[in-house]
Amino acid sequence: MAETTVPAKREEKNVPSTREEARTLSPPVDIFENDDGLVVVADLPGVSKENVDVRVENNTLTIKGHAEGICPTEPQYQEFELLDFFRQFQLSEAVDQDRIKAELKNGVLMLHLPKKEQAKPRQITVNVG
């Protein structure tokens, strides 16, 4: 599963940080394989169900999330910054894109990407002429 960056939206080096809208965080992910297919697990702290956007276009999986803090005041001592999340992956042809399932719990997104049913082996009858 290769990682891709299709739109030029991702944070790039040498781009002035004043372009606030373009600044995104790449969430850390775990990807593993089980009997059904692939599972993608991403940490998206501060992202609620309404603010997460997972889509598949041209075999590209895009995970976007808008993070919102719960603290009522501006931080005075700051170790982290809640920016929007953005990350893309190239999907293989074997993924059944219609059956992708996603769940979000406690800021962790879990995506199930099942594999397509394998083409069933067919018996070919041989006619003896």
Partner: peptide
Amino acid sequence: RAYPMMNVSEDSEKVYVEALAPGLNP
């Protein structure tokens, strides 16, 4: 490293500590 990362703020009544800790067992 220090985990979880946190932001600290205060107003006249309260101190707020916000920590970045996704996927915890509550």
